[in-house]
Design a protein around this nucleic acid. Structure first.
Lengths: 155, 155
DNA sequence: TTTCCTGCAAAAGCTTTGCAAGTAC
DNA sequence: GTACTTGCAAAGCTTTTGCAGGAAA
């Protein structure tokens, strides 16, 4: 499993080579930023982060690169509840928590997440694949709700 | 649980009253269309459906109404993998299957879905709520993959 | 050298909004 | 009668695209 454990240029370069992606300064910056951060940023948030870190990069490149990373399977595209997409450099199955009020997405601590994921009965998933003629690539679980403290603007 | 089992005007009107939504011809048409259909349409798909059924309605109203329905909890907003949102009139927890290639979302047959959902251990969910200070409103599970027959345009 | 990537700016989609007229309550 | 909805068109977002110059392999 190609986890983002080592983020030095060399490691990322190898990762890219494995999936036949050219290694560029911009792609490294984007992947590195995404893998270093625990939130699941939108394109624009990522763009801001990179801009502030003095990386000179264009918004279109962020879009293009993320699409390329998703296609290679190095990054996953998530739904935020709202208008724009969010991205996640962790591609193993894991749990997300989504705040209804803000759209932000956070990870559930690995141990708890695993406990929940491991309970999913494989034979049921297999049966779904057979009944629907559908190949499951991964399972996405989101706990939707709100933080106790975020009881702000609810209509 | 306010399920969309009876869709006559009266039933929907009651439903709306319960959640303090004014009952209008357009809102009825939108909710009825959404609840009658098994796919999980995008705003535009819904708008097309209504237009073809001779309902005279504006796109903005579809957006406004869906937002109102989501706020009242009568409808759920889903992520399609792509650019536009999808909507679902079934608010009980249930499983979705999302086709990577087309973005379409379908339901997993209720019996299979329930088998999977019932395995989720409540005590783990509770613990997540406590550890994160997060109130879980509902659980969203998506099986992402592709139909055996939809092996079309994959790069 | 060849092929792909980047950046810009322009275009295309999706969603929201202001406002006047209409409708539920 | 009052407050909320509708519909239109315009504005605001997010995302994609064409193309010329630049960089990786």
């Amino acid at each position: 499993m190609p986890a983002a454990s080592k983020l030095c240029e060399q490691a990322v370069q190898e990762l890219f080579t494995q999936v036949h992606l050219r290694f560029t300064r911009q792609r490294y910056a984007i992947y590195h930023a995404l893998a270093s951060v625990h939130s699941h940023p939108t394109v624009d948030e990522l763009f801001q982060m990179l801009a502030q870190a003095n990386h000179d990069i264009s918004l279109a490149t962020v879009y293009n690169t993320l699409e390329a990373l998703v296609k290679s399977g190095l990054v996953r595209k998530l739904s935020d509840g709202g208008t724009s997409a969010r991205y996640d450099a962790t591609v193993d199955d894991h749990l997300h928590v989504r705040d209804k009020n803000t759209g932000t997405v956070a990870d559930v601590p690995a141990d708890l997440g695993q406990r929940l994921l491991k309970t999913l009965p494989n034979e049921v998933l297999k049966q779904i694949e057979i009944e629907l003629g559908f190949k499951i690539n991964h399972v996405e679980i989101e706990l939707v709700g709100e933080y106790a403290s975020s009881k702000t603007h609810v209509a």
